[in-house]
């Protein structure tokens, strides 16, 4: 935990420095009387750089007990995030209804490892519900189906 925090603090400082230089060179600061687009970004960057250092120092000085790490799965958040990205992409290419159906099936299979029967019923029911609610009742304009274009 401590190493991870130190890394983040360092990154924060570096990001702050980068923002400062971007604001200085690209956006231009203007003057105190008439600040330009880079004025506030520069201040924010400077503050971030300082805070990152302050955090590092604080980490250096405080000693604390590491809580025993709970066993956690890193692959489930990752796979679900990847699925969601694929879903966003599929929505435009495949169409809303088909991609929603496929997404829920994939989620149940990959993230939850459900049985097929349950997977399919959840997928169909939720897709139908989404269609009824958003398209039928609320008239949200969704991307149309690929094979209907």
């Amino acid at each position: 935990m401590k190493l991870r925090e130190q890394l983040t603090a360092l990154l924060t400082s570096l990001a702050g420095v980068w923002i400062m230089s971007y604001a200085w060179i690209v956006l231009k600061l203007g003057s105190i009387h008439v600040p330009d687009a880079g004025f506030l970004p520069f201040l924010c960057g400077a503050a971030l750089a300082v805070l990152g250092v302050a955090w590092l120092l604080a980490l250096h000085w405080t000693k604390r007990k590491e809580a025993p790490a709970e066993k956690r799965l890193w692959h489930r958040p990752l796979s679900s995030l990847l699925l969601m990205i694929a879903y966003g992409w599929a929505m435009e290419t495949l169409g809303y209804i088909s991609s929603t159906l496929v997404f829920v099936i994939a989620w149940q299979q990959i993230v939850e490892k459900e049985k097929w029967a349950k997977t399919l019923s959840i997928a169909v029911l939720s897709t139908l519900a989404m269609y009824a609610l958003f398209v039928h009742l609320l008239k949200v304009p969704i991307p149309s189906e690929f094979f209907l274009r």
Partner: peptide, 25 residues
């Protein structure tokens, strides 16, 4: 269980068809 599965499959098929054809025409 397999009957259950068949029923769900059927349900899926019908629903997909309904969803698809509702936008047809």
């Amino acid at each position: 269980m397999s009957r259950m599965r068949r029923v769900t499959l059927l349900l899926t098929g019908v629903s997909v068809a309904v969803l698809v054809f509702s936008g047809w025409g």
